[in-house]
């Protein structure tokens, strides 16, 4: 789902870096101050786990496959704050070390997928009293909320940055294209993400509330 380089205008990625930068700095400061020795290794392996979850493919109708986001699982197991930092690190490693994704899109991806997706998933886990339903909804909403936000950001580009001849300077399609094109498939991917979240939680042998 996450956006590659070249599609986002500086009017969007610069303020997004400002917001994400404040949150990353706060997270690192919190990590340095914590007295729990496992905090740093835990963040590192949670990052690797978030990356591995994104590799898991699930079948979709029509013979195609899609990658799950694992945001619901990350939020259930590690909490929203840790999920945000871990997913941000995944995007950083992908952009700067594995040649996947991009640095201009990094803060938008981190805020949409890492922060808002994890908060939505965490909210579902807190609000829904039935464990299976809560886990399924966390997996589903952790996929759909970032998809909606990314569709909104991409669809905003032609309104933000236009050339003198009225042609778009960055991503050319408006909300009428981005919302159905991105959100509808991810509503389906979210179902698979929700199922994988429930099944993985059971396979982990977790009986307590997430």
């Amino acid at each position: 789902m996450h956006i590659p380089d070249g599609f986002i205008a500086p009017q969007v990625y610069a303020p997004a870096y400002g917001v994400a930068g404040v949150l990353w700095a706060a997270g690192l400061r919190r990590l340095r101050r914590t007295l729990e020795p496992a905090a740093v290794p835990k963040l590192a392996v949670a990052t690797a786990a978030a990356y591995a979850l994104m590799l898991v493919t699930i079948p979709l109708p029509g013979g195609t496959t899609a990658h799950i986001t694992g945001v619901g699982m990350m939020a259930a197991l590690f909490g929203a704050w840790q999920a945000f930092l871990s997913l941000s690190l995944v995007f950083l490693i992908q952009a700067l070390m594995l040649g996947d994704g991009g640095v201009t899109a990094l803060p938008v991806n981190a805020l949409a997928v890492g922060l808002c997706g994890a908060l939505a998933a965490r909210g579902a886990l807190l609000l829904i009293p039935w464990r299976t339903a809560a886990l399924f909804t966390a997996g589903w909403i952790g996929t759909v909320v970032p998809a909606v936000l990314i569709a909104l950001v991409l669809g905003w580009q032609p309104r933000l940055a236009l050339a003198a001849d009225g042609q778009p300077l960055f991503f050319p399609f408006g909300w009428s294209v981005t919302l159905p094109a991105i959100v509808l498939p991810h509503m389906l991917v979210g179902v698979a993400d929700g199922l994988v979240t429930v099944m993985a939680w059971r396979a982990l042998g977790r009986r307590s509330e997430p």
Partner: peptide, 19 residues
């Protein structure tokens, strides 16, 4: 789907263990 779920669970368990 089952393979995806057990793989995800394996990585999460492994992450906790590695930490």
């Amino acid at each position: 789907l089952r393979h995806g779920a057990s793989t995800a669970a394996w990585f999460l368990r492994r992450a906790e263990h590695d930490a």
